Simulated scan of single mutants.
Amino acid sequence: MTNDTTKKAQPAKAAVTDGPYDVIYFAKKHRISNEDAKGIIEKHGANRKEADKAGRRISV
C-alpha cells in the first residue's frame, strides 16, 4: 500500500460553519422558540458570532 497524498479531504467543520445556522438547531442551542430563532438568523445571516450574541440575549 502506498500513501496517496494527492487526495485530500475537505475539513467537515468548514462546510458547516460557513453559512447561517439551521433554525431548529439554533433554537435548541439557545432554548428559544423557532420563530425567534428564525428572526435572528434572518437578521444576522451568516454572521454566527452576532447571531449567538442575539440568541443569548433572548434566552435570558
Results as ranks from 00 to 15, higher is better:
Tyr21Ser: 03
Met1Ala: 04
Lys13Arg: 13
Ala27Ser: 09
Asp52Pro: 01
Lys53Ala: 15
Ile24Val: 13
Asp18Phe: 00
Glu42Ala: 15
Lys28Ala: 07
Ala51Trp: 10
Lys8Phe: 02
Arg31Met: 09
Glu42Cys: 11
Phe26Met: 00
Gly19Glu: 03
Lys7His: 08
Pro20Arg: 11
Glu35Asp: 06
Phe26Ser: 00
Asp36Pro: 06
Ala51Lys: 11
Lys13Cys: 06
Asp22Arg: 08
Tyr21Gly: 00
Gly19Gln: 02
Ala12Gly: 11
Ala37Val: 05
Val16Gln: 09
Phe26Asp: 03
Ala54Asn: 02
Asn34Ser: 08
Lys29Tyr: 08
Pro11Ile: 00
Ala12Tyr: 07
Arg57Pro: 01
Pro11Gln: 10
Lys53Trp: 06
Gly45Phe: 05
Lys8Asp: 02
Asp18His: 01
Ala27Thr: 02
Asn47Phe: 01
Arg56Pro: 03
Glu35Phe: 00
Gly55Ala: 13
Thr2Cys: 05
Ser59Trp: 07
Gly39Met: 01
Gln10Gly: 03
Val60Thr: 12
Ala14Asp: 12
Pro20Ala: 12
Ala27Phe: 05
Lys29Gly: 04
Ala14Lys: 12
Arg56Leu: 14
Tyr25Gly: 14
Pro20Leu: 02
Asp4Asn: 14
Ile32Val: 07
Ile40Trp: 14
Lys38Ile: 07
Gly39Trp: 02
Met1Trp: 00
Ala37Ser: 10
Gln10Asp: 04
Asp22Leu: 01
Lys38Cys: 05
